[in-house]
Design a protein around this nucleic acid. Structure first.
Length: 567
RNA sequence: UGGGGCGUAGCCAAGCGGUAAGGCACGGGACUUUGACUCCCGCAUCGUAGGUUCGACCCCUGCCGCCCCAGCCA
């Protein structure tokens, strides 16, 4: 028994601990993540990846990455590449164990032959429709295929001819001979090989028969020596078949088997305010509701990465949600909390004004510039500091001024005082408006006795706001993201004829074009995350940002108890 | 009405017969040159009805509710 994290406890770890205590698998723990390369990975996959990976790591075992590429019609190299990139980013290290289930087509073909020889598999000539009819229903048993008792020699010959391409798609299949009356539909003589004259992304045109998941997966696990094969709950019904395959492989082709693999199922991750199914995500992309698989509003790994979320935050989140068997939908707020907690400890603080309002400090000399010092991480001197230019004309956040402030508003309003972060206390003397009545400028005075760190005025102001010098500010575009959907469950509150796309939040993306950032940000690393003080955590868009045109994505906002209180 | 699962606070989730961990959210307070961070405090008798037991969230029985399965997808 290995104590991993005393806080951590779930049924899978309990099983592993017991297996180890019982001396199973010679004390080895070997897991795998088996993606089908037919789409992009999302945060639900991250849960599975990190669960498998962390178990192997914590138990000093091994973790394989194996692509389940048994269906050439749906699979593409493009997805293999994106999946590899996503898993690397997450930090799940498969070392030298990157496999493709298509690597084992040959030995699996041999296994199928032995099943036939043992009288446990047969070639069935029924059409797809007939097979469905013969299968029965949920409440009625199926009936035997007329081909069920074909002679072994005939089955062998037919199977070989299937392999040789002598028959068209859909004309014949290989089936396991199990039990057409089973209450478990998966056991009613499941199809294990079908004819598919399609080019495979790895094996090309070498094969025209391809194994089905239920045959392929357990064999591949056992072949690779996977001790604990973790999958999601919907595969529970497949477990008896999984066991049937592994047991038969052990008996009939032991030389290719390295382990008596066991399957365990856990609940997949659902998150509020988003969708997780491949089909729905695909629709969002294909119908243009988002700008691609990596649109920062998507729950895909690629999107999280582009948005600026760190893999550490994702790992912490996956750790905290736990692993269990009950259907669950995790509150998006937990993910956001994990992101904030991680970034709070890492992101250096800068000032950025998202919606600028010009302020003229009337008693500040025209050309004087004073470089004030700002700590990168307030309270942590080791993180260093940087300087920001203070001048006569500055921008402040438009929302930090209110002409008619509500009670307890600690920012600027006519006649009130506020501290400019790291600089001086100013007082709003005059409000300048345009012809429509919109506030376009504030004229303020500063108090020279209030220099940050050297304040001798004795003044106490509650409010501290951020600012950027007009002359020195860096222009930037900032993208703010909100939940992609209006409802916790995008399938809720739908009228007749509506679907989840009707619940898309029309304000999920806000692009602010006139932002100004303090000049120190010009030298920042593209890969760094920053906190724009009082606004949130930001990351340069990897695709669209450039030295000439800075584009920042808001990863997540800061908690804002003031905004919450004033809702 | 077949088979397989699940039901512990608003959301996750420990617990494995000895008298309900933890996190998020939420509410309150302290601190604060980020209304951030941090720190304190508060926040459940375990779907339900019986039974077994000195004692049950944990064992048994019935009921209720929810999820999955009838692809030559994975």
């Amino acid at each position: 028994m290995i104590e991993t994290d005393s806080e951590k406890s779930n049924f899978i770890l309990a099983i592993i601990n017991k297996d180890l205590a019982d001396g199973l698998n010679d004390g080895h723990v070997h897991t795998r993540f088996p993606p089908e390369p037919n789409g992009y990975l999302h945060i639900g996959h991250a849960k599975a990846i990190l669960l498998n990976y962390s178990i192997a790591r914590d138990y000093k075992g091994k973790f394989n990455l194996r692509f389940d590429d048994t269906n050439p019609i749906k699979e593409e190299q493009e997805f293999v590449d994106s999946i590899l990139e996503d898993i690397k980013w997450l930090g799940a290290d498969w070392q030298d164990r990157l496999y493709f289930t298509s690597d084992y087509f040959e030995i699996k073909y041999e296994f199928a032959r032995r099943l036939i020889k043992a009288g446990r598999a047969y070639v069935c000539d029924l059409s797809p429709e007939e097979i469905r009819d013969y299968r029965g229903t949920l409440t009625e048993p199926g009936k035997d295929s007329p081909y069920r008792n074909r002679a072994v020699e005939e089955n062998l010959a037919l199977f070989e001819r299937m392999k040789n391409g002598e028959f068209p798609d859909g004309s014949r299949v290989l089936r396991a001979k199990i039990d057409m009356a089973s209450g478990n539909l998966n056991m009613r003589d499941p199809v294990i090989y079908r004819i598919l004259h399609a080019s495979h992304h790895r094996t090309g045109d070498k094969w025209c028969i391809y194994p089905m998941y239920d045959f392929d997966h357990p064999f591949s696990d056992a072949h690779e020596g996977i001790t604990h094969s973790l999958c999601s709950i919907e595969y529970s019904d497949h477990r008896p078949l999984y066991d049937w395959i592994v047991d038969n492989a052990l008996e009939l082709i032991p030389e290719a088997i390295n382990c008596r693999s066991r399957q365990y199922e856990f609940a997949r991750l659902n998150l509020t305010y988003t969708v997780m199914s491949k089909r729905k995500l695909r629709r969002l992309v294909e119908e243009g509701y988002v700008q691609g698989w990596d649109d920062p509003r998507m729950p895909t790994i690629a999107a999280l990465r582009r948005r600026g979320v760190t893999p550490e935050a994702v790992a912490d989140f996956c750790d905290r949600i736990g692993v269990a068997r009950s259907d669950s939908t995790v509150d998006l707020a937990l993910l956001e909390h994990c992101i904030r907690e991680d970034l709070n400890a890492k992101a250096h603080r800068f000032m950025g004004v998202l919606e600028p309002l010009k302020v003229i400090i009337t008693n500040w000399p025209e050309d004087k510039v004073e470089w004030v010092e700002l700590e990168n991480m307030p309270g942590d001197e080791k993180a260093g500091s940087h300087k920001a230019p203070f001048a006569r004309e500055i921008y402040i956040e438009r929302e930090d001024f209110m002409e008619e402030p509500p009670k307890k508003f600690h920012r600027l309003s006519p006649g009130s005082e506020v501290r400019l972060k790291g600089a001086y206390i100013i007082k709003c003397e005059e409000v300048v408006k345009d012809s429509t009545g919109k506030v376009i400028e504030l004229r303020c005075s500063y108090d020279p006795e209030t220099k940050s760190g050297e304040d001798s005025s004795g003044k106490k102001v509650r409010g501290v706001i951020h600012w950027v010098s007009v002359r020195h500010g860096l222009p930037a575009t900032v993208r703010l993201y909100e939940n992609l959907f209006l409802n916790e469950n995008p399938d809720d509150d739908l009228d007749e004829g509506q679907d989840f796309t009707d619940n898309i939040n029309p304000d999920s993306l806000a692009v602010l074009e006139n932002c100004v950032l303090e000049p120190a940000l010009a030298e920042c690393h593209r890969e760094s995350r920053f906190q724009f003080m009082r606004k949130g955590y930001f990351f340069q868009d990897p695709k669209d940002s450039s030295k000439e045109h800075l584009v920042f994505n808001r990863i997540v906002g800061l908690r804002d108890s003031w905004a919450k209180k004033n809702k």
